[in-house]
Design a protein around this nucleic acid. Structure first.
Length: 338
DNA sequence: TTACAGTCAATAAT
DNA sequence: ATTATTGACTGTAA
């Protein structure tokens, strides 16, 4: 049986339609031991017999590009053959062994064969790697060789790994994912915890506040920043406030696939609209006014109407501006525990 | 009506 | 670039 036929058998076994090297065939399953073992049971051809047969140990002759299987297996399992291999002719005593011997009852013969890194190492490794070498002494050199080769096998098979199919639900629509996000949560949400989860997820996923706030929560970055830094307890939230945390809570339950469904939606540019609008400038209390206001706040955080109007008068501001100052101040002082 | 939660959005701060 | 801050506006509950 020629190497070509062996490869053909292997291809049939693997169900390969196209040309492939033996290495690729083995790599497809990623497990040379398994290929050999399974082939022994399934292939009716001489795949395994070839390996065990004298024929297999015949050196490839110089005019023949066919290599014997031992050589092929060595090529498969080793990046490069051991440097101190003295030749290509393997010990006939060993390779005329039959299946029964390979099953593990070869101790007597094995012990006569030198291990180490010589020629013998090649065949002993091959047998050992198939797990058919039960009585090997602890201190035998074969152990190192075997484990070393196994590493190489693992390394070699990587490029041929078939990635496990990622379970996805390709049919779920954006609308459906959004619906999931808005599904009410029964019971109390730990706002602090949710916010912590979201923030670590954002960091891990490399997504910024603006993107998350706008695409997922449909809120502004600033708003998200505030509620994520000092989330109010669930009980204190009104319906709209709760809804935001429901979204964050549900978000963490989504698969990455589902998350991407939402994150991939492109925001419609509002540049045009913004250009048409005259953007307001934000008033800032002058330093002196702020000092007065803060001074009052220290002793009285709820000034009455009279004081408010007096301040408004003095500062040439509207009473609402003064009112809002105290309102916002109280709210934010409470939130930040100050 | 009024205070406050929810927000926006400019802009300060990193 | 991003995140934090904050004056002001909106809607709601009391």
């Amino acid at each position: 049986m020629s190497t070509t036929n062996v490869i053909k058998s292997a291809k049939d076994f693997e169900g390969y339609q196209e040309e492939a090297t033996l290495k690729e065939l083995v790599g497809k399953n990623g497990d040379i031991e398994n290929v050999i073992e399974v082939s022994e049971n399934i292939i009716s051809s001489n795949f395994l017999d070839f390996f065990l047969n004298d024929e297999a140990v015949e050196p490839a002759d110089d005019n023949n590009t066919d290599k014997n299987l031992i050589t092929l297996l060595d090529d498969i399992c080793a990046e490069s053959p051991p440097l101190d291999v003295s030749g290509t002719i393997l010990n006939p005593d060993v390779f005329t062994t039959d299946k029964k011997m390979l099953r593990g009852n070869v101790v007597e013969k094995e012990n006569k064969v030198p291990f180490g890194n010589g020629l013998g190492a090649r065949w002993s490794y091959n047998i050992a790697s198939f797990g058919l070498y039960p009585n090997q002494p602890e201190d035998s050199a074969i152990r190192a060789i075997r484990s070393g080769e196994k590493k190489r096998i693992l390394k070699a098979k990587k490029p041929y790994n078939i990635p496990a199919p990622v379970p996805v639900n390709p049919d779920i629509s954006l609308q459906e994912v959004t619906h999931i996000l808005d599904t009410p949560v029964s019971g109390v949400i730990n706002t602090k915890e949710v916010v912590g989860d979201i923030n670590s997820w954002l960091k891990k996923a490399g997504i910024n506040q603006t993107t998350f706030a706008e695409k997922v929560l449909e809120k502004t970055q600033g708003h998200f920043s505030v509620i994520s830094r000092n989330p109010a307890p669930w009980e204190e939230l009104l319906a709209p406030g709760k809804a935001v945390f429901v979204r964050m809570y549900n978000w963490m339950k989504l698969s990455e696939e589902e998350k991407n469904k939402i994150l991939n939606v492109e925001k419609v540019s509002k540049k045009k609209d913004l250009q048409e609008k005259k953007k307001k400038t934000r008033f800032t209390f002058p330093k002196e006014q702020m000092e007065v206001l803060m001074g009052i706040y220290e002793v009285n955080d709820r000034p009455g109407k009279e004081l408010i109007e007096e301040l408004a008068e003095k500062f040439s501001l509207s009473p609402n501006q003064i009112k809002d100052f105290f309102l916002n101040r109280r709210r934010r002082a409470k939130k930040s525990n100050l």
